[in-house]
Design a protein around this nucleic acid. Structure first.
Lengths: 102, 102
DNA sequence: GAGGTAAATCGAAATATGTCGATTTATGAA
DNA sequence: TTCATAAATCGACATATTTCGATTTACCTC
């Protein structure tokens, strides 16, 4: 969890929105039957929701992942992204403790 | 409190450091006797601590102020900046509730 | 192996940010 | 009114970010 990269990744309303969307799988189109038991959302679904180009979303997810805010798992041709709740909680704790607290 | 501007302002390690420094007046050189009873820290002291140019610090403080993270008060030739604890607490609450919470 | 699909990477152009020194504005003191 | 000081604004240049379409890579199926 790199706080510099985290702030950079969060400094964009769509990337923040993606993090919010990822809180609930129901925010995306239904998964393919063969993916029903997998965690996370594929890039194409995120792209469709965000209405930006494939390369932009791939880049965004890379930034979020590099910052530690999401985790990815490859299954076949698909990469599934999900929130990294532990890292997000740690970030909140750090913000709360070091920077933004009174 | 504009969350976009807040993230933009926080997306810089020196600006975050300034917010931390502002938690304690003792992080800066002692105030002039005639300013002893005033809240906040003048630009020159912040500049000295951050070791960046006067115009850069003035710009930084403007960004922090525009984001609502600090408040300013002019006293004579000096502008004193201090944390806006209410806005900072509100930001934390919003982050916690909307974006970063599980 | 050939063809198709998902995602990552590349290269480029437009826009934004960081940072400075110089200038201007505001204020106070002589 | 003149001078000095603090801070804001201006103009410029370097660097970083945004975003795209095109290409490449990875993987699956036939």
């Amino acid at each position: 969890m790199n706080i510099d990269k985290a702030f950079a990744a969060l400094n964009n309303p769509i990337r923040r929105q993606i993090l919010v969307w990822l809180k609930d799988r129901a925010n995306f189109p239904p998964a393919l039957p063969e993916h029903a038991d997998l965690d996370g959302v594929c890039v194409a679904h995120i792209q469709e929701k965000a209405a930006l180009s494939q390369s932009t979303i791939s880049n965004y997810m890379g930034l979020l992942k590099d910052a530690g805010l999401v985790l990815s798992a490859r299954h076949g041709q698909w990469t599934f992204y999900r929130r990294n709740e532990a890292a997000i909680a740690e970030l909140m704790k750090q913000l709360s403790a070091e920077i933004l607290c009174e």
